[in-house]
Amino acid sequence: MGGPFEAYSDLDESAERLKAADAGERRVAVMELGHAGDPDAIPLLAGVLADPDAGVRREGARALGEYDGLEAAEAIALALIDADPDVAAAAADSAAELRDPAAADPFIALAGHASASVRAAALRALKELRRGDALKPALEALRDPDPSVRVQAVGVLGFLKREETIPALRIATADADPQIRRAAVSALAFAQSAAATEAIHAALRDEDWMVREVAADTLGNGAAGALVAPALIAALDDAFWQVRLKAARSLGRLRAVNAAPRIAASLVAPQVNLRKEAAALGEIAAASSRPHLEAARDDPDPDVRKTVGWALRQIDRRAAAREA
């Protein structure tokens, strides 16, 4: 194609240049195949993965990320088990680009591979593909010795949003690694069952503050307000203000009236971010919060003043609605 337009290179020509003696020239041919946008380039790119030069193989793994579907996935999976770590890393990134559920097959097969980085990359690819038959390998991977694998397994299960994942995710909320506990608590957000809520509930007492923060946040999503309110109120005494903040916000979302006096106490907290959570008092809109909010009207922080003003108006509106 000539004239003012970008070329769509001839696959045969690129294939010919894949035979060049110079690795740099082969690499340029691989890049062309990546940008060809023609699925007929996939088998040629799969062949590149046998190139003696690791740089060329890495370019091949990267170029395969331009394509989707089972055939591309099989080639990417081959690159994922390349001995060169840079090739494997490029393949892992390309695998995460896949969107066609048919691409899942080779990664389900690799979920039990001997190398932890391969297992993790395979599960990472499976997450977005949301295939039901990824459930079993993901459940098994939750017992993987390597935390980087377990965290991806939680992701696969979380994206599936299926009831049968709940027992396994519950166990993961007690994982030795805080990052996995965090992920597992978030992954349970979809579940409305008492068992799931109880597990998140327990995470409010986790030794890691970021797990507690996620738990406090997640509990605000659920319908089980009455069940979780006492635990969230207890979390308003957490040693970390970040946790107290999420607890207040969740209690606001749950409109937990009995939490209002305790949230009002945070209006005098030294952290402005926490005082700003006076917004929760607006969501709850209990008349009893009014004096605390009135006292905070002249807070030195403009954002706090704004949320206080907003909260007071919510109480007014609620009162007016009740009278009407």
Binding site: D22, G24, E25, R27, V28, M31
Partner: peptide, 10 residues
């Protein structure tokens, strides 16, 4: 740099 091999990416 492999521009001499035909690369023009940058």
């Amino acid at each position: 740099c492999i521009a001499d091999k035909g690369c023009t990416v940058c």
